[in-house]
Simulated assay, not measured.
Amino acid sequence: MPTLMIQGGADLCDEPASSEGQQSCFTGGYRRIVLDDAGHFPPREAPPREAPDAVADAVIAHLR
């Protein structure tokens, strides 16, 4: 199963570095996106630290 990992670059709960180098755990393809200005909940619409539009765009592109 192709996997898309989306993480906020300003996430203070799970640091972005913790999701680096995980490709070997996924046999069906893996893509990681770090949204620089987003926090812990990137899909939420709670500015200024989240990015729901960027998350939606990434998911739509992934599903195509």
Rank of each mutant, 00 (worst) to 15 (best):
P2K: 09
P2A: 06
P2Y: 01
L4Q: 08
L4G: 10
L4C: 07
M5S: 07
M5A: 13
I6H: 10
I6F: 03
Q7D: 09
Q7L: 06
G8H: 06
G8A: 06
A10W: 01
A10E: 13
A10T: 00
D11A: 08
D11W: 00
D11Q: 04
L12D: 15
L12K: 10
L12P: 09
C13E: 11
D14R: 00
D14Q: 10
E15G: 10
P16N: 05
P16W: 01
A17D: 15
S18M: 09
S18R: 07
S19D: 11
S19R: 02
S19C: 07
S19L: 05
S19W: 01
E20C: 02
G21H: 05
G21K: 03
G21N: 09
G21T: 03
Q22P: 03
Q23N: 10
Q23R: 06
S24E: 15
C25D: 14
F26E: 12
T27N: 12
T27H: 07
T27M: 05
T27I: 00
G28M: 05
G29F: 00
G29V: 00
Y30D: 12
Y30L: 01
Y30R: 04
Y30A: 06
R31F: 01
R32H: 05
R32Q: 14
R32K: 10
R32W: 02
I33E: 15
V34A: 09
V34L: 09
L35D: 08
L35E: 07
L35A: 05
D36N: 09
D36S: 13
D36W: 00
D37Y: 00
D37R: 01
D37W: 00
A38F: 03
G39Q: 06
G39T: 06
G39H: 02
G39Y: 04
G39D: 12
H40I: 05
H40P: 13
F41E: 13
F41V: 12
P42T: 06
P42E: 08
P42H: 10
P43Y: 05
P43G: 14
P43I: 00
P43L: 08
R44C: 13
R44S: 15
R44M: 15
E45D: 15
A46L: 08
P47C: 08
P47K: 04
P48C: 04
P48H: 09
R49N: 13
R49H: 14
R49G: 03
E50R: 07
A51E: 15
D53S: 10
D53E: 15
A54T: 02
A54V: 01
A54P: 07
V55P: 14
V55F: 05
A56S: 12
A56N: 14
A56D: 10
D57E: 15
D57F: 02
D57Y: 02
A58F: 08
I60R: 13
I60N: 11
I60A: 15
I60Q: 11
H62L: 07
H62N: 10
H62E: 13
L63M: 15
L63G: 11
L63F: 12
R64F: 11
R64P: 12
R64H: 14
R64Q: 15
